[in-house]
Simulated assay, not measured.
Amino acid sequence: MTGIPVFPQAQQAQIIRAHQRDLYHVSLLREQAENTFRSWLGTRTLTRWDKEFDLLIKLVYYGLTTGRATQTLGEEYTDIWQRTTTVPPSRLTRAALVLLPSLPAYILTRFVNMSSVSAQSPMLAAVLKGLPIALETLTELNLAVFYIRGVYYDVLKRLLRVRHLSSLPENPHTRPPSYSLLGVLIIVRLLYRLKVFLQSKPSTVAEKRGKQVASSRETYLDDRPVSQMLDTVDPESEPAKPAEEDERTMLDVASLPPAIRASRTCTLCLEERTDTCSTECGHLFCWSCIVGWGREKAECPLCRQSLNLTRLLPIYNL
Rank of each mutant, 00 (worst) to 15 (best):
Val233Asn: 02
Tyr179Asn: 07
Glu76Ser: 11
Pro258Phe: 01
Val145Tyr: 11
Glu245Gln: 12
Leu168Pro: 00
Gln32Pro: 00
Ile57Leu: 14
Ile186Gly: 02
Cys269Trp: 05
Ser237Thr: 10
Phe285Leu: 02
Cys277Lys: 08
Gln71Glu: 10
Leu124Thr: 12
Leu55Thr: 07
Thr72Arg: 12
Leu168Glu: 13
Leu318Met: 14
Ala96Asp: 00
Pro104Asp: 08
Thr109Trp: 10
Thr43Gly: 06
Asn113Lys: 13
Leu135Asn: 04
Leu230Asp: 12
Val155Glu: 07
Ile186Met: 11
Gly67Leu: 00
Ser180Lys: 15
Arg295Trp: 06
Arg311Pro: 00
Arg17Thr: 14
Trp81Tyr: 14
Glu207Ala: 13
Thr139Gln: 12
Val112Ile: 15
Ala33Met: 10
Pro242Ser: 13
Ile260Asp: 12
Ala298Ile: 00
Val253Ile: 14
Ser167Phe: 06
Pro301Gly: 10
Pro104Thr: 12
Gln14Cys: 05
Ile4His: 04
Leu284Glu: 02
Ala125Pro: 01
Thr36Asp: 08
Ala298Trp: 05
Asp50Thr: 08
Gly210Ile: 00
Tyr147Gly: 00
Ser166Phe: 01
Arg273Glu: 00
Arg38Phe: 01
Arg161Ile: 01
Val226Gly: 12
Ser203Gln: 14
Met114Cys: 03
Ser166Cys: 08
Ala243Glu: 03
Leu194Ser: 02
Ala10Ile: 05
Pro225Trp: 09
Met114Val: 08
Thr86Gln: 09
Arg68Cys: 09
Val26Met: 07
Arg30Leu: 11
Arg273Ile: 13
Lys241Pro: 00
Tyr147Arg: 02
Arg248Gly: 03
Leu268Tyr: 01
Pro101Gly: 08
Arg311Tyr: 10
Leu182Gly: 11
Glu244His: 13
Ser27Leu: 09
Ile15Pro: 05
Thr84Ile: 07
Met229His: 15
Gly150Gln: 09
Gln32Phe: 07
Arg264Thr: 03
Glu247Cys: 01
Gln9Ala: 15
Ile260Asn: 05
Gly183Pro: 04
Phe7Pro: 01
Ser278Ala: 15
Leu309Ala: 09
Leu313Gly: 00
Val127Glu: 06
Pro101Lys: 06
Asn113Phe: 07
Ala96Asn: 04
